[in-house]
Structure formats: structure tokens, C-alpha cells
Design a protein around this nucleic acid. Sequence first.
DNA 1: TATATAGTGTTTTTT
DNA 2: ACACTATATA
Length: 767
Amino acid sequence: MLDISVLNDKQAEAVQCTEGPLLVLAGAGTGKTRVLTHRVAYILENGLADPYEIMAITFTNKAAGEMRDRINSLVGYGAESIWVSTFHSACVRILRRYIDRIGYGTNFTIYDSGDQSTVVKNILAGKSKNDKINDSKKKFYITAISGLKNRLITLDDYKESDEYDEKVYTVYEEYEEELKKNNALDFDDLLLKTVMLLETDEEAREYYQNRLKYILVDEYQDTNKAQFELIRLLSGKYKNICVVGDDDQSIYKFRGADIRNILDFEKVFENTKVVKLEQNYRSTGNILDAANNVIKHNEKRKSKALWTEEEDGLDVEFHRVENEYNEADFVARTIKRLKSTGRFSFGDFACLYRTNAQSRHIEEAFVNNDIPYNIVGGKNFYQRREIKDIIAYLKTVNDGVDDLAVKRIINVPKRGIGEKTIQNIEMYADSNGINFYDALADKNCMDILGTRTAKKVERFVYEIESIRTLVGVESLSNVISRIIEDTGYEEMINEGTKEDAMNRMENLGALISKAIEYEEDYREKLENRANGAYDITDVSNMKPKDAESEDDEAVLGTGRDLLTKFLADITLMSDIDNLEEDDSRVLMMTVHASKGLEFDNVFLCGMEENTFPNRMVLNEKDGVEEERRLCYVAMTRARKRLYLLSAKHRMIRGSMYLLNVSRFIREIPGLYKENAKEIQYRERMENNDEFQDARHEFKRKAVFNISVEKIDSLDYGVGDTVRHMKFGVGEVKEIRNGGRDYEVTVDFENYGVKKMFASFAKLQKLD
DNA sequence: TATATAGTGTTTTTT
DNA sequence: ACACTATATA
């Protein structure tokens, strides 16, 4: 029997108020996951719905897995039939079943941000041969297209809209064509197309609306328009929609999250009940106090204040250190000191920072102090080159429909098939309206290429075809192994440095393990079905016990489908999903990555103006408010100890910057006493017109350049003979003091006149 | 076609 | 500082 007495009044209210729309405003650490899981259990125990009629949506696979586990331990039998998934995988499941109704093949592939980038790059390259494609241009279009899709603005809508821009339109148009041609959907499409499907196809809509009696949404503050529409559509019949979120923790605006979803929820869903959770069970009084003091400076928020029955605990510590090395050193030494008391394991510590670039020095300090650590994020596992290569092989072996994948690996490892050849094949494929891969198997196409090149291409096709025969026969992991071994991929890797090769092979090993695990899960599921865990042949009971199986049944069944599913699932996997409980390592990650996690002891590094809040958002509208929410998220990760660190100066992109204490620190009373000099300096920064002008320059060059390692004096002069490591002996002709460094002109005996910077050249004076 | 060199643009990034 | 990519060169 479900024990409601473990909940406080507000939590119990949220659990028991099952009918109609419910908005739960849950501050950090107020037990929102507990509310969600108990709510599901409560619905089941009271017979309000069967498990397959309940859907719980989260943002990460990890959160979905955790929620499923917790529901499992709460209700026991039947929990596996509850549809617990991320927004995106839920959409994949719906689309695999119905997407043919809006003109795509049900075996579509998913393009990640890297693929997206490649597509846009190709479009821009085809458009203008003289214009250079730089990253920011590419990024501009990707952001534009993604932003439109997030807001459900299709090509047709965009043409009519007042933000219409011809260039964006044409790129958007070509982008859509390209993806359609490859039967591919990007992440935003998964949501957009599902909404489109449910809007236009009555049968599909009614199927899900009839099934889903209760829908629960986690991290609601980070939903975008598309996600909002999706849940509105899915909950259209029963309208038992419960969303849980915290406007103070909305930190993904830059990815389309729309705070209006939470602020306007009550307007869109009639008769919404609102429950506020404010009692915090995670942090000490002092930590909460500090966090509250920071977040209360935001103007756009629903008012609430966390409180706790816990003790005040230890003071929040602030340390103003000299530079990034001292900061890293402080973290390492403090961890060592606390660890030596025997009361902690390394897993009790986390080190958070605003940007990934800050991780390097901390990592170094950990290495030097023998502190085991784990860095979350940076580059996602599945976005690493070797993994993406093998995925491209798998896609090609699977159906060869995705041109992007085929082109990616046709010359990896090197097969002597270059740019020109690929262009020729592409032209043939385009003019004949066939896939790139199909062109490879086309005799007429090969005739264009010439026998030597054609032979190389045939060899490639042969390799792919022989692996293709193994799909559905051999295990998934074996197929992957064969790709790595038979195509010469492993050899290619081993040509690099030893360290690099080991690293890559390790990653590929992890991919294979993932495949084995995946396959085992799949078999288990099949067995459960065979053992009558549910019976789809029983027509008298039209509702299967396992809702997922019903969706599967509509489209899946063979080994090829297992591969398709695997490819989709790993594309939707993120770095944090693979984070396993490991008590023996300190965790390092960005503040963004830390959301939803908690630790006994937290170090928050880089509490400086221009670092956190980050310099890039200072001129953005509402930019600082979003940074403040980020800061609030970071601080509320801590249970017992919170260390805030700030460096007086640090080296950023090769230049030294003087940095002020972050305004967030100054918002916490009593933490930091500024001395007169610093106040004066800050006021000059904030009020001086001259400085404001300089701030615009700030992006490009170091305004506060105080010391680049400059050689004070040279031990050689004009006329001296010097030796250079590479150019040998020469005579110094000129020395120019270039401010940062000396520029030395030397006439070398064998290489002629060269100009070089003294600090790099390391010239040696000869007598 | 493969490799060496110069040039470039650097916040965050659940999926 | 550093990684990534466009361009020149072998």
C-alpha cells in the first residue's frame, strides 16, 4: 500500500489532485521527483488508470530511467508498461508508427547537430562560391531554422510571417529538401512532425488521446512551443495533465525554452490548479539563504522562497584567489584535506564551472594531486569522430538511404576516393534521381569514373554488401566488430599516436558494449512477450499490457529493425545519460550539466564578472537574468558545503584579463567586503563612457591586458650572430619593440631573411 | 588525392 | 591556447 505520510501537505496535495490540469511549482530540492512518482503510484493504486494509460515525460534518458526505477520500487508489478520516456524518444515511437501518413518513410534516420551542421555547410557552399562560409554564418542559419521549428513555424508559415528573411527562407527550404531526400529528421523535426501528424491525422490523434488518461511532465520550465503543443494534443481528451517545473531554474532559453509555457499555463489550460512546493529537503539553511538572496534579484519570476527545517549548517565560503592556478589548487587542496578526515569519498565532491574551457586547470590540479575525477560533457560520446564513423557505416549497411552517412565513410579509411569522384557520383545520382549509394552500384555511373576509380568504388560496395548479409544473422555487436576489422578502420586508427589509438579503440569498445547491452534488453523484451507478459493475439482485450509493444508491433519485428531502433536510440543519447554512480571520483561539469544532480560539497569556480555572468550575454536582453538562474541552479546543487571561488585575473584565449568579483557574489550579504580600490575600479568599469566603448572592443581584444609573457631584454642586439633551432646561423638585422613582444629580423645563411617574435624563436647568441 | 600550412573564431547545448 | 578548416603544395 502506498504510504502518503512520507509526503508533506503540499506534496500530498499534488499527488492526490489527479483530475484536470495541475501546475506544480517546485523549487530546487523540494521533492518534485518524489511527487511525480507517488502520483503515478497513487493513480494506479486507486484504479484510476492502467499502467499503459499513463505517460511520464522527462528531458534526459537518465531522468527517464531514474523515474522508471523509482516507480518500479513503489508499485511493483505493471510499472514497466508505463510510458516513461523523453520528449524525443516518445516522438520517435509515434512517428515510427505513423509518419508515412505525412510523407516520410517509417525507417527514417535522425540527424544530430553535427549532421545538421554538415547539411547547412553544403547548402551554403552550393549557394556562393566566392563567399566564405564561416562558423558564425553556419550557426546563424542553424539557430534560425531551429528557432523556427521550435516555434512550429513551417516554411509556408514563415513566408507569411513578419520576420520573413529571404536568405533564411531559401536555406530553410533547401535544408528541408535535403533532409526529406535522405529520409532524415533532425531533433527539432521529431517534435514538429509529431505535432503536425497529430494535428492532421485524426486516427493517430484519437489513438493516443484515448489511451493517455494521465500525462506528467518533468522540468516543464524548459519546454518550448513544440513540446507544449505536443502535450496539449496528447492530453486533449482527458486533460489530466500535470506539469512540474521551477521558473527559477529555466536555463535553456537559448535552445528555445519558452518561459511563457509556465507563466501562461493557467491561461491555456482551463481550471488549472496550482501547487507550490517551497520546503527544501536538500541544502542547509545557509546555502538556501545565499541562493535565495541571489535569485530574488530577478524581476521576472513567480514569487517564492525556499525554506528548510534543517540547521543553518556551515557558512558558505567565498575565496578571492589570485588566478586560475590558485583557484584549481584551492579546490584540489580542500578536497584532499576533507578527504583525509575519512568522512568523505571523492564522489561527495563536485566542481562546477560556467564554460567547458575552465575545466583544464582544475583537471591539471587533480592530476597533480592524485585526485580521481570524471569530466561530464565537453564532447558527447556519440559525437566523437570514431563513433560517428561507425554509426555512418551502420546506417549505410542498414539501408544506404542516408547520403550524408555514405559520403562520410566512403573514404574513411582512405580508399583513394576523393572530392572529385564524390562530386561526379553526386551529379550522376542527382540527375537520375537516385540515392548516392545506389549510384555506386550503377554500372552507367561507374563508366563515367574511369576504370581505376570504379575499381576502388566497387571494392567499397563489396565491403558494405558483405557486412550487410550479416545484419539480422549475426549479433549487432558482431556486425560492429566486423566493420571495425574488415574495413581497415582499426588499422587506420593504429596509424595515429599510441595514446590516441588506445583512446579511440576504447571508445569503440564502449560502443560494442552498448550494442551487447541493447541487444540483451531487446531479447528479454521479446521473451517476456513470448511468455505471455502480454498477449497481442487476444482480440477480446484490445488493450495490450505493454503499450510500447503495441507501437513496436505496428512496424518492427526483424533484425534490420533492431538496427534501426539502435541507431535512433544512440543518436538520442547524451553524455549525462551514461553517468554512472561512482563514489570514487570527483565530478567536474558545467553548471548546465549539473541540473537535477546534487552533492554534499560543491565548488563553484570562476565567480567573476565576464566569466559568470558570461561576457557574451551582458548586452543581451534578459541575459543576466538567465545567468542568475544558472547561478541559482549551481548553488542549490550543494547539500552541506558550498565554496564560491573567484580569480583576480585569468588568461583567456592567450590574453590576460583583470576580473571583478561577480555581481552574484555581491548580491549575497556579508560574503565579500570590497576594498576602496576595487569599488573604484568597478565604478569606473560600470559608469565610465570610455570603458563602455572599450567593452565593445572587449570581444575582440584584451582591453585589460596586463602581462603577456614578455621578454624584458634580449641578450643579443643588431649585428650579433645567433642560432635558430630550424634555420641555423644568421645575423640580426633589426629588432623592433612591438609592445607585446620583440620582433626580430634575422638574415640566415641558408634560409635568407626571416622575421620572428623573440619569445617564440628562442634565438641563441653566438660569439 | 594526400598532406602541410595558414587562417579563423571561439557560452551554455537535456535531444 | 587551441582546435578546426580552408587553402596551397607536393
